[in-house]
Each structure stands twice: as C-alpha cells, then as structure tokens.
C-alpha cells in the first residue's frame, strides 16, 4: 500500500525533475559568483528550498551582506506560501503528524499544485506525499551544488551577461505567475513606485516600496467575482 502510493506520487512528479536542473545549475553558478561557498549554497537550498526567492536573495546579496534586506526580500517573494499553506490544510488533515509537518514545511509550487490536483480524486497518503516530494526535494540542492562547483570556475561572468540573467529570470517568473489584468495593475504600480523610490532613496527601499505599491494597487483593482479560488484553479491548470 505504502509503496504503491509512493510510486504513484513519484510518477506524478517525474516529468518535472529534469526541468529543475537548468535553474539549479544557474542558481549554483550565480550564488558562487556572489561569494557563497558550495556548503553554504547547499545549506540555503535545503533549508529555504524556494527557487524564485533564492534568486531574489542572491540578487540583493552583496559584500558586506545586507542581512535585513536579504531576509525581507525572501519573505516578500515567498509570501504566496502563506496562501498556499492555507489552501493545503483541508487536504492534509488525514495524514500522520510527521508526514503533515514534512509536506507543509517543504512544499513547492510544483508539489503543491500536483497534491491539490491529486486530492480532488483521492485522499493524500504518507506514501504519496513522500514519493511526490522525496527525490524532488533532494534534486534542488544537488544540481545547485553541481552549478556551484562548475560555475565557480567561470571568470568575468559579466562578459556573458550573467548580471542580466537575474533580470531575465525574474521577467520570466512574472510571466509564470501572470493572472491577467490584476497582474498588469500590480506590475505597473510596482514599476512606477519602484523606479521613483530607486531614484530618490538610498539602499534597497525600492524593493519594499514597489512591492507594497503593487499589492495596494491589486487590492484596489480587485472586485467580487475575481476571487482567490478561481485564480488558484487557474494556477493549478497552468502548472500541471
């Protein structure tokens, strides 16, 4: 029973395993160029375990490390987990405590979406959850480490446009989370306010000011009928 479920979960995530690899290699490369050691990179991947937010944090990363800005940016980029964790609750109450803690603690966009899809047809079991998340979890730090070891050898990364890779990556992540007009409103407000703040204020305030402006604009634009449940469904469709 456990292994049937395990196999089921594993097969559901299998197509996505290889897709993570190029991003992990890129992350390892960029992080090692910012001065993180391979051990630190693996530690970050295993404990933070959130690709998008990790790219954000490495972009803000500098010497000396602006710890507060790095942590704040990570929190902002990961705020969606607040809603995703909330959406998981009704579906994991049948799991044992260890399985529940594990899954709530390390779910990703991908495993979250697949688990919610699965729970529409069958109750989640510890076997399924472990099959779904086990290798997928290890996959991220592993390929990041390879990226750190190989990417650390490249000198003068700016010659290859490595500094712009962040921007390109973030623009693509925006596209991945696009939810129509409400996203356009948020992006527009964030760009205008962020640009003004970046020109006028020192430090990393533009990140916070842009983010809050975008959120306020989305809240102001929201109308009944464009509720969260629909967008969650849309995300589910887009990711699986």
């Amino acid at each position: 029973m456990f292994w049937t479920e395990f196999r089921r979960g594993f097969l559901d995530i299998l197509p996505l395993l290889a897709g993570v690899m190029p991003f992990a290699l890129l992350f390892g490369t960029l992080a090692s160029q910012k001065g993180l050691s391979p051990v630190e990179i693996v530690l970050m991947c295993a404990t933070v375990y959130a690709g998008g937010a990790q790219f954000v944090s490495i972009d803000v990363w500098a010497t000396p490390v602006p710890v507060l800005a790095v942590v704040l940016a990570t929190g902002l980029a990961n705020a969606r987990y607040f809603l995703m964790g909330a959406a998981l609750r009704p579906h994991v109450t049948g799991l044992s405590w260890p399985a529940r803690l594990w899954f709530v603690g390390i779910h990703s966009d991908e495993t979250w979406a697949i688990a919610l899809k699965r729970s529409q047809t069958a109750a989640l079991t510890p076997g399924y959850v472990l099959g779904l998340t086990g290798l997928f979890y290890l996959n991220w730090p592993f390929w990041c480490l390879i990226g750190a070891l190989v990417g650390g050898l490249i000198d003068d990364p700016a010659r290859y446009g490595a500094d712009f890779m962040f921007v390109a990556m973030f623009l693509c992540l925006i596209r991945g989370m696009w939810q129509g007009r409400i996203s356009l409103v948020a992006v527009g407000a964030s760009a205008v306010a962020g640009l003004a703040a970046q020109q006028l204020l020192p430090g990393h305030w533009y990140i916070f000011i842009g983010a809050v402006s975008g959120m306020l604009a989305a809240a102001a634009f929201w109308s009944p009928g464009s509720g969260r449940d629909e967008s969650c469904d849309a995300k589910l469709e887009a990711r699986t």
């Binding site: 998008g52 954000v56 972009d59 803000v60 940016a73 902002l76 980029a77 705020a79 969606r80 607040f82 809603l83 909330a86 500094d163 712009f164 962040f166 921007v167 973030f170 623009l171 992540l173 925006i174 989370m177 696009w178 939810q179 409400i182 996203s183 948020a186 992006v187 407000a189 964030s190 760009a191 306010a193 962020g194 640009l195 970046q198 020109q199 533009y206 990140i207 916070f208 000011i209 842009g210 983010a211 809050v212 402006s213 975008g214 959120m215 306020l216 604009a217 989305a218 809240a219 102001a220 634009f221 929201w222 009944p224 464009s226 509720g227 969260r228 967008s231």
Partner: peptide
C-alpha cells in the same frame, strides 16, 4: 481567519510586485 477578497488579491499580487520592483533599476534606469 480566512484570507479572502482584497486581502487575498494583495497577497497574490505580492510576488509579481516584488519581482517587478527588483528588475526596475536594470530594466528602466
């Protein structure tokens, strides 16, 4: 508590708003 309506819309918009703010210095300035 249940996060719904405007509060949920703001939370949902947070990642794209952060990512936009992050690209602004390079992309626009």
């Amino acid at each position: 508590v249940t996060v719904t309506g405007r509060a949920a819309a703001a939370m949902e918009a947070m990642p794209v708003a952060v990512l936009t703010a992050l690209v602004v210095p390079t992309a626009l300035a």
